[in-house]
Computed example of a mutant assay.
Amino acid sequence: MTIDIADRLARLGMTLPPAPSPRGAYTGVVIHHDIAYVSGQVSRVGEQVIAGPVDRATPPEVIRHAAQTCVLRALSALAAALPPATTVERILFLRGFVNAVPDFVNHSQVMDEASSLLHEIVGDTGQHARSAIGVASLPGGGLLEIELTVSLTHEPERHQRSATPPQHAR
C-alpha cells in the first residue's frame, strides 16, 4: 500500500510547510535504495522556534504543537526529495530528541505526540519503532527534534510498453 500524504493531511485540515533547507553542512534527506533518511527537524515554524526545555509544567498543547511542527517539517523535507513516481510505503523508525530539564523523565510521552500524529497521517503503515532521548539542548533552543527513516516504493510507470515483446517458453 502506498500513502498519499498530501491527501491524508488535507482530510485532517493540515498542509505541509515549505520544505526546510539544511542549516549546515549536511543533506536534508538521503535516499539509499528504497530507504529515506530524513535529517533532524527541530520544532521551528518559519524562523520562530518552539523552545524548550520541557518540564512538568510545560502545557500539553505546547508539546503537541512542537511535535506536529517537527512531523510536518520532516514530511515536507521528504516530499521535496522524493523522485518522480516514488511514494511512502511505511514509516520505519522515529528518533526524537527532547530538550528537557535534568529531572524530567517523561520523554516517551512527549514523543507519543509525534508518533500519534504520524499514525493519524499515514494510517497503520505509520506504526514504527522509536527512540526518545532526553538532551540538555537543541539547535536554536528547540523543544524537540525528530528524525525519520522511511521505506519507499516506486509506482509502475503507466502507459509504458516494453521495447521487445515477451519471449514464450517452448
Rank of each mutant, 00 (worst) to 15 (best):
D4Q: 09
I5D: 03
I5K: 01
A6R: 14
A6V: 15
D7K: 11
D7A: 11
D7V: 09
R8D: 03
R8V: 01
A10S: 15
A10L: 12
R11K: 15
G13F: 04
M14G: 06
L16E: 06
P18K: 07
P18A: 13
P20R: 04
S21E: 13
P22T: 01
A25T: 05
Y26K: 01
Y26Q: 02
G28Y: 00
G28R: 01
G28D: 05
G28H: 00
G28N: 06
V29Q: 00
I31V: 13
I31A: 02
I31P: 02
H32G: 07
H33S: 14
I35K: 08
I35L: 11
A36G: 04
A36M: 04
A36L: 02
Y37R: 11
V38G: 01
V38H: 01
S39G: 02
S39P: 00
G40I: 00
G40D: 02
V42S: 09
V42K: 01
V42N: 03
R44T: 05
V45A: 08
V49K: 08
V49F: 15
V49L: 07
I50Y: 03
I50D: 00
I50R: 01
A51C: 10
A51H: 09
R56N: 15
P59Y: 05
P60M: 08
P60V: 15
P60E: 10
P60L: 12
P60H: 08
E61M: 14
V62D: 07
I63D: 01
I63S: 05
I63W: 02
R64E: 13
H65S: 13
A66R: 06
A66I: 09
Q68R: 14
Q68W: 08
T69G: 10
V71A: 06
V71H: 04
V71L: 06
L72Q: 05
R73F: 02
R73A: 12
A74I: 06
S76V: 03
S76D: 04
A77E: 03
A77V: 07
L78H: 06
A80V: 02
A80N: 06
A81H: 04
L82A: 04
L82W: 05
P83Y: 01
P84G: 07
A85H: 14
T86L: 10
V88N: 01
E89F: 11
E89D: 11
R90F: 03
L92M: 12
L94S: 04
L94Y: 06
R95M: 07
R95Q: 13
V98K: 08
V101S: 13
P102G: 11
P102C: 13
P102L: 12
P102R: 07
D103G: 08
F104L: 11
N106F: 14
H107N: 14
S108R: 14
S108E: 11
V110N: 04
M111A: 03
E113P: 01
E113Q: 13
S116W: 07
S116V: 12
S116E: 11
S116L: 13
L117W: 03
L118E: 05
